[in-house]
């Protein structure tokens, strides 16, 4: 079980969260009309072995989406921040 540091609530069990998505993906602007751009955003992933920036949702807590940096090989967690406070 992962223990995830929520910037709002502190260190909490993985069971309070749901995994969201790769946080390096940038959702295209609403005005974007190129299906290729949307295809890459919706379907394509880097899926790295090692350090991974990812979104988690503190769904049974403060309901904030947080950005967690985690190693996908060792599950080591390096830190987290509130997504809304991360530079866009």
């Amino acid at each position: 079980m992962l223990r995830i540091p929520c910037p709002v609530c502190g260190l909490r069990d993985e069971t309070e969260f749901t995994y969201g998505a790769d946080a390096t993906l940038r959702r295209p602007d609403m005005e974007e009309t190129d299906p290729g751009v949307w295809h890459d955003y919706v379907f394509i992933r880097d899926n790295p072995q090692g350090r991974h920036k990812e979104y988690w949702h503190h769904v049974s807590g403060c309901r904030q989406w947080i950005l967690v940096e985690r190693d996908t090989l060792t599950h080591e967690i390096f830190g987290s921040s509130l997504v809304r406070e991360v530079a866009a």
């Binding site: 079980m1 069971t15 995994y19 899926n47 060792t74």
Partner: peptide, 13 residues
């Protein structure tokens, strides 16, 4: 388990 992982190791939940 519900999150990206290559660890071949699962958790208690």
């Amino acid at each position: 388990d519900g999150f990206n992982s290559y660890a071949q190791r699962g958790g208690l939940p």
